[in-house]
Write a protein that binds this DNA or RNA. Structure first.
Length: 427
DNA sequence: TCTGGGGTCCTAGGACCC
DNA sequence: TCTGGGGTCCTAGGACCC
């Protein structure tokens, strides 16, 4: 253990986690002044359940993840204002926030759509300087994007995450030195990054009941009864860095596209059409990161929440050659679907996952395989450039789905920042 | 009536190798 | 009667994240 510490754990690190407050709900509020001080919630695809709440909505005890029909009365009485998820808007606002953060020229990892880590280690700041920097970050992001953020600072990413929880009420919080023990004692295990309800139960079984207990736990015991990740979390609570920031976030290692349907689908052809439309979306994303896939997985499932007979299955296949050519993916995805489709079930959802990527212009071939067809790449380039000018100008016949199965979003706000036809009008 | 979508990482076990 | 020891690589499934 001593050896491990001296070899791998470097002292004197400092990380900040910047997290946008109630991000999706905040994005809706920016462009709609009528929503000021009102409770706002954003719904999942298909307008199913709640995935974001403004602070006013949180005060009404509206739960994350619960289906919207539970709050029908609040919506009808204009107490709760709901929106379909507008990922084009949120994605663009996220980009603006991240660009603002980049202007500080500090090593940075974009961790999610509304969060980023900064590695402050080399800046060597004292407590007051840290507070000043955090305030500057908050102010600049608010001034440039109108988004409010919380800044949490700690000696490891795990502590910065925890500090951010404290910062939700105070705006800025630095978790170090004397206050760590005090905070950890009143922190629930599942409020720690990387520990959920399930892991919490397993920790209870070995006599660890709080974040403070986990900090002081025996790493050998943690490794034996749980996993290496829990050991790392415990070290991180002790201000010993195990997790570094990852600045190379550009390329994804897998790309998934899936959706639940507005109406359940029984028929193979309708299921195939929607799968093909997801396959085309995933393949387009793959081309955007200039890579080709060697592996795909297709899944189908009936509803988890109905009395209909339940069936869920998936099929994985290795592609005979790396490809980002939509017709190739459509063909193999359809093959995979045929393997798992069963008649007489009411399907609610399907999707595709592409993985095992290689660089688009480094193709491995062999003696017995035809040479790669460069015309395929040229065709996809043309297709993408046409669709860039006007979305969905060209698509494959197999993608054409019946409107009634498409997931619905009835309360969609405008794409205020990305579409000339949907600009905010000020009278 | 109505219950999301998109990711990463770890581990156990199988299939190989000598 | 008795059948080794030490590896690597791959994958499915689980567990976690937002």
């Amino acid at each position: 253990l001593e050896l491990f510490h001296t070899l791998f754990i470097k002292p004197n690190n400092m990380f900040a986690l910047i997290d946008c407050n109630n991000f999706y709900a905040s994005c809706e509020k920016i462009f709609n002044p009528k929503l000021k001080n009102k409770a706002v919630a954003v719904l999942s695809n298909n307008d199913g359940c709640i995935i974001a709440r403004s602070k006013e909505a949180k005060k009404l005890n509206i739960e994350m993840g619960s289906p919207i029909f539970k709050y029908k009365d609040l919506v009808q009485n204009n107490i709760l204002h709901i929106f379909s998820s507008n990922f084009v808007l949120y994605g663009d606002m996220s980009k603006r926030v991240m660009q603002t953060l980049k202007s500080f020229l500090i090593p940075m990892e974009i961790y999610s759509i509304d969060e980023a880590f900064l590695d402050l280690t080399t800046l060597n700041l004292n407590y007051t300087e840290l507070l000043n920097l955090a305030a500057q970050i908050k102010n600049r992001i608010y001034k440039w994007t109108n988004i409010e953020v919380s800044v949490g600072i700690g000696k490891t990413k795990t502590l910065a995450k925890l500090a951010n929880k404290q910062a939700k009420s105070k705006g800025i919080f630095i978790l170090c030195g004397n206050n760590i023990e005090h905070i950890l004692k009143k922190t629930d295990l599942d409020d720690i990054w990387g520990i959920n309800k399930n892991l919490k139960k397993r920790l209870y079984k070995i006599g660890i009941y709080s974040a403070f207990d986990l900090k002081n736990a025996n790493p050998i015991l943690l490794k034996k009864s749980l996993s290496i990740n829990v050991v790392k979390i415990s070290f991180e609570l002790n201000e010993k860095k195990c997790l570094d920031i990852n600045e190379n976030f550009r390329n994804k290692k897998s790309i998934c596209s899936s959706r639940s349907f507005a109406e359940k689908i029984e028929n193979f052809n309708d299921l195939k059409k929607s799968l093909c439309s997801f396959a085309a979306i995933a393949t387009k994303k793959l081309r955007e990161q200039r890579q080709k896939a060697n592996f795909l997985s297709v899944f189908i499932t009936t509803s988890f929440h109905s009395d209909d007979p339940f069936y869920s299955n998936s099929y994985q296949l290795s592609l005979p050659f790396a490809t980002s050519y939509t017709p190739d993916i459509l063909k193999y995805a359809t093959c995979a679907l045929k393997k798992i489709y069963k008649k007489n079930y009411l399907y609610k959802k399907t999707g595709i996952i592409l993985s095992s990527f290689t660089c688009e212009n480094a193709l491995q071939t062999d003696f017995f395989r035809p040479l790669p067809n460069f015309k395929k790449d040229a065709l996809m380039k043309t297709l993408d450039s046409i669709n860039k000018k006007k979305k969905n100008s060209i698509f494959f016949a197999s993608e054409k789905i019946d409107q009634k199965y498409k997931s619905s979003s009835k309360m969609l706000s405008f794409k205020f920042t990305t579409s000339l036809d949907e600009l905010l009008i000020v009278k």
